[in-house]
Design a protein around this nucleic acid. Structure first.
Lengths: 127, 127
DNA sequence: TGTGCAGGTTACTAAAAAGTGCCTTCTTGT
DNA sequence: ACAAGAAGGCACTTTTTAGTAACCTGCACA
């Protein structure tokens, strides 16, 4: 399991380590819509393997960005939810998204979007 | 050399790839103060190897965040400067820094700082 | 004559991150 | 009797990143 080291160059490096995993942003994006179950997330992330989803969720949990809620049922029921710390990351992701949008337009890069600047605008309007 | 793939999950993933190298943020931080020569950067980044500095600078250049200016002299003189695209990244880095500061305080993590929220405030005041 | 400096390159190695495939537990449905 | 679904675990391989060490050019200086 990836641990945050006690020493970083600076806060930005730390942030990159926290949200820099292969699937982290995508998971946060999905959980942003609301609470989700394991297999629900799995279906929402085409191409992710069971192992990677578990691993990334565990890391997000360890870093305090998501909560894992286990219900004592059979068959098991586990739900994932973003924490307050995770919600507070939104403005940061928004800025990254804004720059990324500008950058990719400038350089003619296309991509499968998840978050767009527009999504954030909508969210702001609703909130 | 690391190429940006034609396809990304989303803009945020792309941004992480662009600034996510081991020394990228530190280099940008240093170049933020103004133009620097190769060995000047090397001295400013204790622990970096020649190879890593060259490599990270090449990637930053390829991604359009810094410019490499080579003077035709002997001994060689090469200067590095952030581009407009690189300068536009500042608000993003500021947001990352802000969240990181809050996060590390919340979780009792200490670090060798480069950028701090304070630095950005000062910059804003001056500009 | 050879040492140093500026700004690299190349080949090789080690470590970290991601991906693959198969195993498990319990229960409901056919 | 057997499959499927939920939520993983474990061992192994591959790919990606980072680090080490040696080498190069061309001049200036002792």
């Amino acid at each position: 399991m990836k641990m945050l080291k006690p020493e970083y160059h600076c806060a930005i490096d730390m942030v990159i380590e926290i949200i820099g995993g292969k699937w982290k942003v995508l998971i946060l994006w999905n959980l942003n819509e609301g609470v989700k179950r394991f297999n629900e997330l799995k279906r929402a992330l085409p191409g992710i393997t069971q192992k990677m989803l578990t691993q990334q969720l565990r890391e997000l949990e360890e870093h305090g960005l998501v909560n894992r809620i286990e219900y004592d049922q059979v068959p098991p029921r586990v739900e994932y939810v973003t924490t307050d710390l995770g919600k507070k990351l939104q403005p940061t992701l928004f800025e990254m998204c804004k720059w990324g949008d500008m950058y990719s337009e400038d350089r003619g890069i296309t991509m499968n979007r998840c978050w767009t600047t527009y999504d954030f605008m909508e969210k702001k309007k609703d909130g």
